[in-house]
Design a protein around this nucleic acid. Structure first.
Length: 135
DNA sequence: GCCAACGTTGGC
DNA sequence: GCCAACGTTGGC
């Protein structure tokens, strides 16, 4: 069981879209570090979905539905995608502002590497984020 | 709208 | 293979 955070621009694809769709293929990841992270995903891993842009907050959960695989729409085999199924919307979104203000997250990739779209979350971070998301 | 912090591209 | 120039992301 691993934990991850995925970023998305909600006007492109939001957590609400995932809830509506019941399942989606998470594609469009091109950054080598993000792809490397995605390659470490396994079925059943838990995911938090973060909205960029105007929101800048963790809004909901999801789960990895299967092992990552090469994007059939791309000729480059390094371009991976992964299927996700939705989890619940969080009661209280966890904002980037809150994480930046919290010394426990000073080394968290979301804070340190603003352009990284797929990143691991440690169990300790995950538990802290879950607590914060309960308000 | 700006720009910091990246990543990518292409000429050499 | 380097690296200058350019492009992109995403927070501010």
């Amino acid at each position: 069981m691993n934990y991850w955070l995925l970023k998305t621009e909600p006007s492109t694809y939001s957590h609400a879209d995932l809830v509506r769709d019941k399942r989606t293929t998470w594609d469009g990841v091109a950054n080598p570090v993000a792809l490397r992270n995605m390659g470490g995903m396994t079925k059943g891993d838990e995911v938090m979905i973060y909205h960029t842009g105007d929101e800048k907050q963790i809004v909901g959960l999801a789960r990895v539905a299967g092992a990552p695989y090469a994007d059939p729409k791309q000729s480059d085999p390094r371009m991976l995608v992964v299927d996700l199924v939705p989890g619940p919307v969080v009661a209280h979104p966890v904002t980037l502002k809150a994480l930046k203000a919290d010394a426990r997250f000073k080394d968290f990739a979301l804070v340190r590497l603003s352009r990284l779209s797929v990143m691991p979350v440690t169990p300790a971070q995950w538990n802290m984020l879950l607590e914060m998301s309960k308000g």
